[in-house]
Design a protein around this nucleic acid. Structure first.
Length: 322
DNA sequence: AAGACCTGCAACCGCTTCGTC
DNA sequence: CGACGAAGCGGTTGCAGGTCT
């Protein structure tokens, strides 16, 4: 079965011969590709336009880099994939001379296996978890590893449903102390406050560094950052590197949800519970994440949260979900 | 040596997005 | 605003070459 664009034509398929490559390259170098559907005819090829386009983009383009991926490229792919997922074309834009097809193949044949061998889920970049007997129990118990043993205020019992947790406060007072308090109200025995805060190292070293690098999408999937809970959340109530929010705060509206509902599990709900909605106000010359005042807004039903940061006077915002 | 199996990669397929009318 | 064609994109397939048994 041929493509839609060439179903009426008699087209050759399969591997390209050197002669075909030469015809196509010569034509495009001399005349440009214009409309791809007209390229086969103009170049004298028994191929469909779609096939010509692919051959040019993936193989004949003069600016393509040949050879194996470098370690630097590999790191870039992993980092960008952690944020963007399987958006190969977007990932390839961060690797000059590489094509989306090449990146995709490299991911599937090499990086994926490496991550699995290291115990990471290549889809989520989280640590792989052992499957338990029942889905419910599995999801409930699986989350303990996220938090360090010394984070006593963040330990939940198996009979506790994190989805019923909600921020204790919606006023500014506690936020201005750089603390985020959650209360679990489904059981009297779990009515305790949890003071958590992202560590400054996380934001400054990981998240901000990424967003300084290039034009990464505003849609930020932070699930990967939950891998090293010690570097993300701590129980400290002081965040010396955080800038105090202003009294009047612009809350960034919710943006596109990343990830599908299919992936939703207790990991997600737990992470959602611990997530923070940040709002921002113009804060000159700061590259620091700003926790906003009055950000809770009673919207914990959302399966996602927002985060934002500023670089100079440019404010960025993103959403994350699992 | 030969067949089975594995791996990497080029190419295809079908869906989505974009642009034009 | 909807229809249509072109382009873009990601998942999948098929094949050649390598490795294993």
């Amino acid at each position: 079965m041929g493509h839609h664009c060439c179903s009426k034509q008699k087209v050759k398929r399969g591997l390209w011969s050197p002669e075909e490559d030469d015809r196509l390259a010569t034509h495009i170098i001399n005349h440009g590709h214009g409309s791809w559907s007209s390229v086969p005819k103009l170049a004298g090829l028994q191929r469909c336009g779609k096939s010509c386009r692919l051959r040019w983009i993936n193989y004949l383009r003069p600016d393509l880099k040949r050879g194996s991926f470098t370690e630097e490229e590999e790191r870039t792919i992993i980092e960008v994939h952690r944020i963007l997922g399987n958006r190969w074309a977007q990932i390839a834009k961060h690797l000059p001379g590489r094509t989306d097809n090449e990146v995709k193949n490299f991911w599937n044949s090499c990086i994926k296996k490496k991550l699995l061998a290291q115990g990471f889920d290549p889809n989520t970049h989280n640590l792989l978890q052992k499957k338990s007997k029942s889905k419910t129990n599995a999801s409930k118990s699986a989350n303990h590893h996220r938090f360090p043993s010394n984070s006593s205020s963040l330990v939940f019992s198996d009979d506790h449903d994190p989805q019923t947790c909600f921020p204790k406060t919606d006023n500014d007072t506690e936020l201005q102390n750089n603390t985020i308090n959650f209360e679990c109200n489904n059981s009297a025995s779990y009515t305790q406050l949890h003071n958590i805060a992202p560590t400054s190292d996380f934001w400054s070293n990981e998240f901000l560094a990424m967003n300084k690098s290039d034009s990464i999408s505003n849609d930020v999937n932070l699930c990967g950052y939950t891998l090293d809970e010690n570097s993300i959340w701590n129980t400290s109530t002081s965040l010396e590197n955080f800038v105090q929010p202003m009294q009047t705060t612009q809350v960034i509206p919710t943006q596109e949800i990343i990830g599908g509902a299919n992936d939703y599990d207790l990991d997600a709900s737990l992470f959602n519970m611990l997530s923070i909605n940040y709002g921002f106000e113009d804060y000159p010359a700061s590259t620091t994440i700003l926790p906003a005042a009055g950000v809770y807004g009673g919207e914990m039903g959302y399966a996602m949260d927002q985060v934002a940061w500023c670089e100079g006077n440019n404010f960025q915002c993103g959403s994350f979900a699992l």
